[in-house]
Nucleic acid binder design. Structure first.
Length: 279
DNA sequence: CAAGAATCCTGTCAGC
DNA sequence: TGCTGACAGGATTCTT
């Protein structure tokens, strides 16, 4: 379930427990996830000290001493389990396990295996093929009305699809695109190039606010970002439209005026929207 | 080049 | 209950 806010929260949780620690043991339980895992991964992790973390789009970068970074993507079903160092009850999909010098254990669980893990020289993180073509960070100062307008210039693809394209803006997923478009009162069907102007001036702040609020909710709803069962970084959200097909639109008084929230399919993904509010 | 479809994989849930 | 099909928060690769 990870989009940018979840990835950010997971990263902060990992940082709280791993930063400055030495990885005393590393298990890599299969040769591949989405792509082959580096054959040297377990050896490279074992004995390494964790220097720090950062996030780029939905990727977590864990910096090790010795000059390498571990690049982690959670895919659709990736999760991190963190807890005292004892065996996990459900190990069927626990593909990677780390143990630290403080006696903690971190497991990467990913049933669908759409996630990925790779090694990259720290100095060349952003040149990695998976990062090289990413657009600006939506919460960064590089993501502006001007940058979004330029990215969408001349594009006739629906704005919903354009916002999911990581080259235009990096880190948005299906949920937050639906929510941000709703908050900005923009139809997901609208042609991208028509977003320029007033609509872009509404959309950019709503994207930033939607993400920032979700990150804040994640940080505040979890102690140390770890739930009692060891699950790291996920939290309940109050979506206004996502997953609310046929429910009343919160912005339409009485709900009856617009007939409720609709679900449509765009480029194979579900879009939730209110046709009355979003134009 | 742009846009949509197919694809990787497993789990869950609704409906019969 | 058991079966079936739809669907899932991603992103690359393949077609058109």
């Amino acid at each position: 379930m990870p989009e940018l806010p979840e990835v950010e929260t997971v990263m902060r949780g990992l940082a709280a427990r791993l930063e400055g620690r030495v990885i005393t043991r590393a298990l890599v339980n299969r040769p591949d996830l989405r792509w082959p895992l580096p054959p040297t991964l377990a050896a490279r992790l074992t004995g390494a000290r964790v220097l720090g973390f950062r996030r780029r789009a939905k990727y977590i970068l864990m910096r090790l001493d010795g000059g390498d970074s571990v690049m982690i993507h959670l895919g659709m079903s990736g999760r991190m389990l963190i807890g005292p160092n004892r065996p996990n009850q459900d190990t069927a999909h626990e593909h990677i396990v780390l143990e630290t010098d403080e006696g903690w254990r971190v497991g990467f669980v990913d049933p669908r295996r759409f996630g990925s893990v790779d090694l990259v020289p720290t100095a060349e993180e952003d040149a990695h093929r998976l990062l090289a073509d990413l657009g600006p960070e939506p919460l960064g100062e590089d993501f502006t009305v001007a940058s979004l307008t330029a990215a969408l210039d001349g594009k006739r693809t629906p704005i919903k699809s354009a916002l999911l394209d990581q080259r235009n803006v990096a880190g948005l997923g299906n949920i937050y695109v639906c929510e941000a478009l709703y908050r900005a009162k923009i139809s997901p069907l609208r042609s991208s190039h028509t977003i320029a102007g007033a609509r872009a001036r509404r959309l950019v702040p709503e994207i930033k606010a939607t993400l920032a609020e979700a990150i804040a909710a994640g940080g505040s709803s979890l102690r140390d970002y770890v739930q009692p069962d060891g699950e790291l970084g996920y939290f309940q959200h109050a979506w206004k439209v996502y997953g609310r097909e046929n429910e009343p639109c919160p912005s339409c008084p009485g709900g009856a005026a617009c007939g409720g929230i609709r679900r449509i399919t765009q480029a194979g993904r579900s879009t939730f929207h209110c046709p009355s509010v979003q134009r």
